[in-house]
Each structure stands twice: as structure tokens, then as C-alpha cells.
Design a protein around this nucleic acid. Structure first.
Length: 208
DNA sequence: AAAAGATGCAACCGCAAGGGA
DNA sequence: ATCCCTTGCGGTTGCATCTTT
């Protein structure tokens, strides 16, 4: 006996949403709200979609006041700091970035920001960066917060440590499936980021 | 110009938590 | 107390587009 499916898979459309589907979902929710439950919503409006799919589409794309497009340096910095502090709790990170969704932030981190921090730039950028990159020097701003370059440095230092001793830190993640690169000891990283964070994330961020 | 590879992002999947019956 | 249903979350996948060879 498997788990009961949330919808009739055979009659449910998958894949990208059409503009017509978007319009239906958007106009219904704007007029009536979710109107009970996500599960029953697609039937009400005649969409051959799973309720979960509708929810995701609304939250990640159709919802008002969403920001699309480039992230600012400030947003980059917030994501980096929060990721280093609390790990991949994307929904919590998203609460600190109005207009951004957890899915969006997760994608941005996985596809761009992580590479940016790890310095995995495309080949043709490497030489240019080597030629122009200033020497890293550790300086702390007046407010005690490390500038983004220092975060980068802290991150890289940790990466090197893990590569030298891959076994260390592996047991820290409960999932047991993470790579050494992802198995970071956050307590060890926190003092690098913000002095106050060492006292516990709950004091700094309001978790839902 | 075309094929192969890399990248970015939307969407899916499965699990866990929460709440009501 | 426990069962069932719904929601929310994070990891992963699929595919369109871009870049490189």
C-alpha cells in the first residue's frame, strides 16, 4: 500500500503553465481567494492541474509584489549571510527578502551565488579576474559585520579545510546524504559572519 | 553553421508537520 | 490517542536557452 496520491495523476496536466491557465488561476484567486483548499481549487476553476501545482504557481510566479530578475548586491549579501548562518532553510531566508520566493532564492543560490562564492567562473572570466582581483585582506567594518569579500574568504577557507579532511564535518548533517562541501559546521562559521549571531539565530531572525 | 555541453529556472516529487475529526 | 487530509518545505529533475568548440 503506497501513499494515496493527492490528485488523479492520469487526468492532470504537467509541465509549463500556459498564459490562459495563469490568467484563470490569477483572476480566481484575486476575486475569491483560495476558497477552501488548494486541492479543490483546480476543479472549481476548471484547471486540469494538481492543487499543489496551483499553489506553487501562485506562490512563485503569480502572487502580487513578486520581484523578478536580477538580485542586488545587498540581496546577495543577505542570502550568503543567512545561508552560512542557518543553512538551506530557504523559506526562512525568503522572509528576509520581500518579493523573493524560497524557490527563487534556492535556484539563485544553487545556480549562481554558490558558484560566485566558490569562484567557479566561466573559463574566459578566469584570467581577467586573476589579472584584476585585489588581494584579500581581512578588515571588519565599523558595525562589526564582515563585508561580502570576507564572507567569500571564510567560505573558501572552510572549503579548503573540508577538502583536506573530508571526513571531518561529515557527521554533522542529519541527512547523511550531503557532500563534504555541503556539510558545514554552522557554529564554526557563525563567528566569521556577525558577532551577534554567535548568540543564537533566534535572537536575530524571527522564524515562523 | 551545427553539434555538444553548460546553464538557469520552472515545476515536480516525496516527506514531515500541523490541525481537525 | 490516532488517523487522515492538507499544506509547506527542500531536494531534484526536465527542458529551453545560451555558450563553446
Amino acid at each position: 500500500m503506497g501513499r494515496a496520491p493527492c490528485c488523479d495523476k492520469a487526468n492532470v496536466k504537467k509541465g509549463l503553465w500556459s498564459p490562459q491557465e495563469d490568467a484563470k488561476l490569477k483572476s480566481y484567486i484575486e476575486q475569491h481567494g483560495i476558497g477552501g483548499s488548494w486541492i479543490s481549487l483546480p476543479q472549481k476553476i476548471g484547471l486540469r492541474r494538481c492543487g499543489k501545482s496551483c499553489r506553487l504557481r501562485w506562490l512563485n510566479y503569480l502572487r502580487p509584489n513578486l520581484k523578478h530578475g536580477e538580485y542586488s548586491e545587498e540581496e546577495d549579501e543577505i542570502i550568503c549571510r543567512l545561508y552560512l548562518a542557518i543553512g538551506s532553510r530557504w523559506s526562512s531566508i525568503a522572509t528576509q527578502l520581500p518579493g523573493r520566493t524560497d524557490n527563487d532564492i534556492k535556484n539563485y543560490w544553487n545556480t549562481r551565488l554558490k558558484k560566485k562564492l566558490l569562484g567557479k567562473q566561466q573559463k574566459h572570466h578566469r584570467q581577467a579576474r586573476r589579472d584584476t582581483a585585489p588581494r584579500q585582506e581581512v578588515t571588519i567594518q565599523e558595525n562589526g559585520i564582515l563585508p561580502i569579500d570576507q564572507l567569500h574568504l571564510a567560505w573558501l577557507t572552510r572549503m579548503v579545510k573540508l577538502q583536506e579532511a573530508p571526513a571531518r564535518g561529515m557527521a554533522e548533517e542529519s541527512s547523511g546524504t550531503s557532500t563534504p562541501e555541503e556539510s558545514m559546521n554552522w557554529d564554526e562559521m557563525i563567528p566569521f559572519m556577525h558577532p551577534d549571531w554567535a548568540h543564537g539565530e533566534q535572537e536575530i531572525f524571527t522564524m515562523q
